[in-house]
Simulated assay, not measured.
Amino acid sequence: MDFGLTDEQRSIVEVTRAFVERELYPHEEEVERTGMLRPELAADIRKKAIDAGLYAANMPEEVGGAGLDTVTQVLFEKELGKASYALHYTCVVRPSNILLAGTEAQRERYLYPCVRGEKMDCLAMTEPGAGSDMRAMRTRATRETGDGRSGWRIRGTKHFISHADEADFVILVAVTGTDDDGRPAMSTFLVDLDTPGLTVHAGYRNVSHRGYTNSILDFDDVHVDDDALLGEEGKGFELAGTWLGSTRLQVAASCLGRAERALDLSLTQAATREQFGQKIGRFQGIGFKLADMAVELRAAELMTLHAAWKYDQGTATDADIAMAKLKATEMLAMVSDEAIQIHGGMGLMDELPLERIWRDARIERIWDGTSEIQRHIIGRSLLRPLGG
């Protein structure tokens, strides 16, 4: 692995960093204070992101995206991750790469408009009784025949669905049968949000990521045609697995960005704040905290970049990605907590972004696979070669 950045990578980092500081940072206070992202503000930033070439940067060039390799995507996500999640997630959109599995007709209807900023997607997997255990999913799609109609009839409920209230369509994972081992077999569907029988309800109030919205989706006898099936019937679990790999690296990368911002603020505080006649950074209790924060951040960054590099080589395992996600999310929890300790009482005041970074860090160890799930993946990979 070459640890040096190419000229192109350095340019992408610089352009993204400048965009974040110029277009996202100034609106963080408003989003935190109101708990919402104004639609007109989101539309304005999206346009600027498109003009800057940052929109849909995760997509290949052949579909209109930037065609970034995975390492460069991690560097890109790290810079975006320094800003409020609602701002960068909603305004500098990275459409779900599951859409790449679609037919050309599906790409014309869903993928290309998402890349151009004309449509937005949302992904619906999680259910009230099925979070980490996707096999416990109850939402079911049943084949319809007769009466001159063909297609699928969908019944069930999804929750924790990010930005469904702003999306144009949902990428739905539902049970469609059983596999050869008698386990639920899942398939993926593209369902327009205005389809009769599909209702979007406001979701739950969240301590993390103010301005980010989650919704509850009810599918009450929703009919979709045969061409709504994305990928192969019964292969939805595998398709979701392909998506989860890249999004877990995305989570890890955004955690790196927030941790770096927290560490930078802490270094400034330690170098300028005086107590007992000297800068607080000269006290061993503060210096050691800074050292530990820097070590943990560097370790998480190297682990994430290594997993991304292996992803580009086609050699990344589920354990590689799980290690990166686990380390980066738990590192952010530690760094944000220590950053507040270094700042004292001011660290918990909303004049600084630290209390937001600290609150937001909590969700990262839960979504896109809990820390326990990541440890399960890693442990299983270690024992499997030994027959365990």
Rank of each mutant, 00 (worst) to 15 (best):
residue 15 V to H: 14
residue 56 A to K: 10
residue 263 L to I: 13
residue 8 E to A: 15
residue 183 R to Y: 07
residue 303 M to V: 08
residue 234 G to N: 13
residue 115 V to M: 03
residue 383 L to G: 11
residue 11 S to G: 09
residue 348 L to E: 10
residue 75 L to G: 03
residue 74 V to H: 00
residue 240 A to I: 15
residue 286 I to S: 01
residue 15 V to L: 13
residue 69 D to V: 05
residue 264 D to A: 14
residue 302 L to S: 10
residue 105 A to S: 09
residue 178 T to S: 01
residue 189 F to Q: 08
residue 233 E to L: 11
residue 195 T to L: 03
residue 374 Q to E: 11
residue 313 Q to W: 14
residue 103 T to K: 06
residue 194 D to H: 13
residue 171 I to K: 09
residue 220 D to V: 00
residue 54 L to F: 08
residue 362 R to E: 06
residue 145 T to P: 01
residue 144 E to C: 07
residue 64 G to P: 04
residue 174 A to G: 12
residue 131 G to Y: 11
residue 130 A to Q: 06
residue 37 L to A: 04
residue 172 L to Y: 09
residue 191 V to P: 00
residue 57 A to Y: 11
residue 311 Y to D: 07
residue 216 I to E: 02
residue 209 H to N: 15
residue 224 V to L: 05
residue 248 R to K: 14
residue 279 K to P: 00
residue 241 G to K: 05
residue 95 P to R: 11
residue 358 W to G: 00
residue 317 T to K: 14
residue 131 G to I: 07
residue 7 D to F: 08
residue 211 G to R: 05
residue 68 L to N: 08
residue 145 T to K: 10
residue 381 S to C: 00
residue 51 D to Y: 13
residue 86 A to P: 15
residue 37 L to G: 12
residue 119 K to T: 06
residue 328 A to L: 09
residue 254 S to L: 06
residue 185 A to I: 07
residue 129 G to M: 02
residue 120 M to R: 12
residue 271 A to H: 01
residue 147 D to I: 09
residue 159 H to Q: 11
residue 300 A to L: 11
residue 213 T to F: 08
residue 48 K to E: 12
residue 119 K to M: 15
residue 100 L to F: 14
residue 21 E to H: 11
residue 174 A to V: 03
residue 311 Y to R: 15
residue 18 A to N: 14
residue 261 R to N: 01
residue 62 E to Y: 11
residue 265 L to A: 07
residue 31 V to A: 04
residue 101 A to G: 02
residue 152 W to E: 01
residue 243 W to K: 10
residue 112 Y to Q: 00
residue 37 L to H: 03
residue 208 S to D: 10
residue 6 T to Q: 03
residue 46 R to T: 13
residue 192 D to K: 03
residue 102 G to P: 00
residue 306 H to T: 12
residue 154 I to Y: 08
residue 201 H to D: 11
residue 235 K to D: 13
residue 83 A to Q: 12
residue 355 E to D: 09
residue 143 R to C: 08
residue 201 H to A: 07
residue 244 L to C: 01
residue 42 A to G: 14
residue 209 H to A: 04
residue 324 A to E: 02
residue 294 A to V: 08
residue 41 L to R: 10
residue 123 L to K: 01
residue 248 R to E: 09
residue 379 G to K: 08
residue 197 G to C: 14
residue 259 A to E: 07
residue 271 A to G: 05
residue 382 L to W: 02
residue 17 R to Y: 02
residue 367 W to N: 01
residue 127 E to Y: 14
residue 141 A to V: 02
residue 330 E to F: 12
residue 241 G to V: 04
residue 43 A to E: 15
residue 338 E to D: 10
residue 127 E to P: 07
residue 244 L to Q: 11
residue 240 A to N: 04
residue 136 A to I: 00
residue 93 V to R: 15
residue 158 K to S: 01
residue 248 R to Y: 05
residue 313 Q to R: 15
residue 371 S to C: 11
residue 69 D to T: 08
residue 270 A to K: 01
residue 88 H to R: 03
residue 85 Y to V: 13
residue 64 G to C: 10
residue 80 L to M: 10
residue 350 D to L: 08
residue 289 K to M: 12
residue 107 R to E: 02
residue 256 L to E: 12
